[in-house]
Simulated assay, not measured.
Amino acid sequence: MKLRESGMPPQDFWETLFDVPRILDAFGFGPDTAEVVELGCGYGTFTLPLARRIGGTVHTLDIDAAMVALTAQRAAEAGLANIKAVTRDVLAAGFGRPAGSCAAALLFNILHAEEPVALLRAAREVVRPGGLVAVIHWRSDIPTPRGPSLDIRPHPEKITAWAPEAGLAVEGTSFDLPPWHFGLKLRRA
């Protein structure tokens, strides 16, 4: 099931809304990072730069087959063999990876979903003990050029409250990811 308010603007506009290297740096992704799952590949905005950085494979999933095809095409054109893009409904069928097999899971701009705790639980299931669940979302304390309605945007405090329900621990506090986002690091115990 496609998430509420999850439509995408044109790619050229979308990709101006993020400082991708800064975001990936904030979560510590580098050559020592093994397998990663990403929920919602979109245009591959984070998928491709992440694949260039890590030593493992990026398993990226989206419910929109057109986005999966585009990301796979962009990966092929870039010569990135460590991206596996799959059409999948994670809420219905999980991430499709063995339990505890991934170093990290990316939940970027996705926790405005109707069932955010279920998404967090699915991410917890797929990461290894000590694994990272990296979360970013649109800020609601400043005007943003995009993002879901303010009434469904999760605040950092809300995500922090959901984390224990999903079996995750919050590492540190939320942090700004200029120009429009905040981030949180969650860990599987």
Rank of each mutant, 00 (worst) to 15 (best):
T45E: 11
S6E: 12
F29I: 03
F13W: 15
T173H: 14
F175A: 07
P98L: 10
A123H: 02
L150M: 15
D62I: 03
G131Q: 00
L24G: 07
S140E: 13
E114Q: 13
L61C: 06
F27I: 02
P129V: 09
G7W: 14
E114T: 12
V90A: 05
A65D: 14
V135D: 02
A34K: 03
G147F: 02
A166P: 03
R124L: 00
L39I: 12
E171I: 07
G44H: 07
F108M: 04
A26Q: 04
L24N: 05
K84Y: 14
V126Y: 06
F29W: 02
L91G: 10
S174P: 03
V135R: 00
A189V: 15
A105D: 04
T60A: 11
R187F: 04
V68I: 09
G172F: 10
G44Y: 06
A104F: 06
D89Q: 06
G147T: 02
F175C: 03
R139I: 00
Q73D: 15
G55V: 10
A51Q: 07
L48V: 11
T47H: 06
L186K: 01
K158S: 13
I136A: 07
E38L: 09
C102P: 02
E77P: 09
G172V: 02
G172N: 07
R74F: 08
K158T: 15
F175H: 08
P21L: 10
R74L: 12
P49E: 10
T71C: 12
E15F: 00
P148D: 03
L111T: 04
A81L: 12
P145Y: 03
V117F: 06
G100S: 08
L3I: 14
S174L: 06
V86I: 15
I142H: 13
I83M: 05
D141K: 00
I152L: 04
G131M: 00
L50Q: 09
R52F: 11
T33G: 02
I110P: 01
R188P: 01
H112R: 05
I54M: 10
K2W: 13
V58S: 00
